[in-house]
């Protein structure tokens, strides 16, 4: 009987530890999927760099080593999916179209799933707001594809999935990012897939 209890205690501790660490792993290694501010396919963590950030954000940054932007510098939006919630993949062609929230400058970059840049023959990894043309309404258009395309073409990073990173520098929306909706951000429209 006593041995039975001891086994149950050990089993409880082992199972509890495994579950707890499993939850930590899920939150820190795949944590990009929750929290923050959402606008269409875009997601931002405005407090990621701040001292009053939540412990999950701190843990994620400690693992990746990413150097966050402070709200005084700007705000970073990440997209892992298109506007219809399907994962971004180099097998498809995407059209990015629409406005960006007000900012002194912005840059748009395509990275691998882990946030690292991936070599492409064009040597092109992103665009800045000074490089793309915008219409009267302030909207722009960029085509994302693994093969060269006419127009403003951004090579899609090779690999199973990729991410888009939109950085707004010196932006008044940093303090009120929660008020942004899908219409304030560029839409990511999937056109065709190989």
């Amino acid at each position: 009987m006593r041995l039975g209890v001891l086994i149950k205690v050990l089993l409880t501790l082992a199972l509890g530890a495994a579950l707890g660490l499993g939850a930590t792993w899920a939150a820190v290694w795949h944590g990009a999927a929750f929290g923050g501010v959402v606008a269409g396919p875009w997601r931002a963590w405005p407090r990621a760099g701040a001292r009053d950030r939540d412990p999950y954000a701190a843990a994620v940054l400690a693992r990746t080593g990413e150097i966050p932007l402070d709200l005084a510098e700007g705000l970073v939006f990440y997209a892992e999916t298109d506007s219809d919630d399907r994962a971004l993949t180099a097998a498809c062609v995407y059209r990015l179209r629409g406005p960006t929230p007000p900012a002194r400058f912005w840059t748009l970059t395509a990275t691998g799933a882990d946030g690292h840049l991936i070599e492409n023959p064009a040597g092109r990894y992103g665009f800045t707001s000074s490089e793309v043309l915008r219409d009267e309404s302030g909207a722009f258009e960029i085509v994302l594809s693994s093969r060269a395309r006419p127009g403003v073409w951004l090579p899609a990073p090779a690999g199973e999935t990729f991410r888009l990173v939109l950085r707004l520098y010196d932006t008044p929306v940093a303090a009120s990012a929660g008020a942004l909706g899908p219409a304030d951000m560029p839409a990511v429209i999937r056109e065709s897939c190989a």
Binding site: A17, L19, G20, L21, A27, Y56, A59, A62
Partner: peptide, 20 residues
């Protein structure tokens, strides 16, 4: 078991920045 899991989870999250 669930209590242990919660404690281990919170402790590991809080310790991450110090240990990474």
């Amino acid at each position: 078991t669930l209590m242990t899991a919660a404690i281990v989870h919170l402790a590991s999250i809080l310790l991450m920045p110090a240990l990474a």
